[in-house]
Design a protein around this nucleic acid. Structure first.
Lengths: 361, 361
DNA sequence: TTGTAAGCGTTATCAT
DNA sequence: ATGATAACGCTTACAA
């Protein structure tokens, strides 16, 4: 069975998991043939009217379009996919729809896609790599013309599979200079490094981190690496950094914060790998009667709306999600339509210094 | 052209908007025929292995599955859709992915769908009815086996179209007793009425409302009607109620709040039609130095995470979004598979009284 | 249990 | 500019 076993094994079972159920005769609708007959032309001509611009005389086109309208004709997607080997469908697989950062980026992604005549197919993985592999197969089997995936890190055999199926893939939410994979994103490590420098500049040295699960999540691990790198730069021991790793979720952020504050030496600042965890930390701080930023500072990452709604407002890193989604859509469509290689785009993130980060010393 | 003109007119243009682009020969993959040959059986047998449970002898099935694996066969979606007239795809059209309430419900919807072997196709309309009509056509053209739509209110010709195409449709996020359309949701009016009673019980009589755009949004208008109804019940004039109608969005909530508070008689409570608007109102209150709830109370609707993150925490109505999504998935699949009529389910919402609502008088 | 073969509704190649 | 017609890959009677 070799290396690919797990991945390939149920490649076919996914889309066929359940028996086809009897579907009481769904009435059938006008087809190309009906339109052709009504317009007194061949099906080829009708198809041309619908798909290509020139190639058909004005009079004929007129007649055909009238027939289309009268009959209420709608093209059959399956037949079209079968014949054209094209679906005008783009798949996107994201960790979750519940975090605003993906929701917002995806919204922009789908709007741009829609403008270009493509439909978006979305699924989410709950941050589970096995689920992602499964979703990728499903979307490919459904004939997605291209795929948007989040981040770089995944099993190489997934990339092999994708390459073998010749499906254009664009990565988003991350950008690593030098990595050959086409991606539209930003430098997670650099952004977090910049934030860490700001934290140090505020006089903090006792830093603790609340991180998302690192395994399979390069955005999280890059951000953590950004913090560690700056500590090292400044002669602090990156290995002494307390890090709590937990699933992205408000309650987990709260719990992690509680744990950190119960330790014997409390940190003076808690850096969270995203705003959701930071919001949880803030909530817990209030619950424990710990003043932010007087007793402890808290920082986030992403700059979702939450960041400005909590009190005090959250110091964080702003990421241009909408721009990223929209640019990714344009780039991916380009890749699909030109069969081109895909160009990476690095977007800029920006520090947002707000009241949750205070001065120390 | 008659009544249906606008709707029917470009029924065919949508999915074919752009010319088919040359797609350099995408390599071709093993087909059913290849598998059949490799396993030494007919294509029919392979198909049966993949789709039906009994009907094939153990030995044969074994051989076929081995062939499938070795070849790395994946069924062709278009061909399958064409032959079976089934896609195992469910479409959902929501106003926006950016509001957590839809994101969360949709996440649950898709998870349940996935468990049942269906794929979810999502699009969003930005609360624009014309966009919704367009998306509905697109999804139907793509062979969605069923559709999930939000709320009841839409152009009757859309319902006609859907009926004529025999596409099962389930509504969500709303439930109106007596309305024959199958829906999984809750009583928006009743829920808001309950909240309003609580507000009155806190001694408020000077109420103002920040509402979403009412046109085409029955959830919003039902909620508003809930408030008005209770005012009337209590001998207050529902027509004297100040209402600001604005798009769902934090900044709009803030602006609307500012307007209300600049009026000569300030309300003692601002009821917002959802939590997002309420969060904006809270933000603005802080910016204007208006104490909540001492000077003015604020209420929301939905109980998204935001509600507990803001200070003071938001009094709101809790809606079981995940349960709604999951139940909707089960019901819609049932409708699709049984060609059944669709059963409505009313879920219960619940008051969440928190600090943003204070006592007056 | 298995095989044969007729569609399914398009697109696209080749003629004309 | 238009028309015939052969794919496209699968499902499903109907036969054996």
């Amino acid at each position: 069975m070799g290396v690919h076993s797990v991945f390939v094994k149920d490649a076919v079972r996914i889309p066929t998991r359940r028996a086809i159920v009897d579907l009481p005769d769904r009435q059938s609708f006008p087809t190309l043939t009906d339109v052709a007959r009504a317009a007194g032309v061949s099906t080829a001509t009708v198809s041309r009217c619908l798909n290509t611009s020139g190639k058909v005389s004005g009079a004929t086109r007129e007649r055909v379009m009238r027939a289309v309208e009268t009959l209420g004709y709608t093209p059959n997607f399956g037949a079209r996919a079968l014949a054209a080997k094209r679906t005008f469908t783009i798949g996107a697989i994201i960790p979750t729809m519940e975090n605003a950062i993906f929701a917002r980026g995806l919204q922009a992604f789908q709007e741009t896609l829609h403008d270009k005549g493509y439909t978006l197919l979305v699924s989410s993985t709950a941050y589970r790599p096995d689920r992602e592999a499964e979703q990728i197969r499903t979307l490919v089997a459904r004939g997605a013309d291209g795929l948007l995936l989040i981040g770089y890190e995944r099993d190489p055999e997934i990339y092999d599979f994708l390459r073998s199926r010749r499906v254009p893939v664009l990565l988003a939410w991350a950008h690593q200079t030098g990595n050959p994979h086409p991606a539209v994103g930003f430098d997670n490590r650099g952004a977090m490094a910049a934030l860490t420098r700001a934290v140090l500049a505020h006089g903090h040295t006792a830093i603790a981190v609340i991180s998302g699960i690192l395994r399979g999540n390069d955005r999280a691990s890059e951000r953590l690496a950004g913090i560690r790198g700056v500590l090292q730069e400044n002669g602090l021991d990156p290995h002494a950094l307390p890090v709590i790793e937990t699933a992205y979720d408000i309650d987990n952020g709260a719990r992690a914060f509680a744990t950190l504050m119960q330790a014997c030496d409390r940190p003076t600042v808690v850096m969270c790998v995203n705003d959701v965890l930071a919001a949880g930390a803030m909530q817990q701080a209030r619950a424990m009667g710990i003043a932010v930023p007087e007793e402890v500072s808290i920082t986030g990452f992403d700059d979702i709306e939450l960041a400005r709604l909590v009190t005090p407002q959250l110091t964080t890193v702003h990421v241009p999600h909408r721009q990223m989604g929209s640019l990714a859509a344009r780039e991916l469509v380009r890749m699909v339509e030109t069969k081109g290689e895909g160009v990476s785009h690095e977007l800029q993130s920006a520090l947002r210094l707000r009241a949750s980060l205070g001065r120390r010393g």
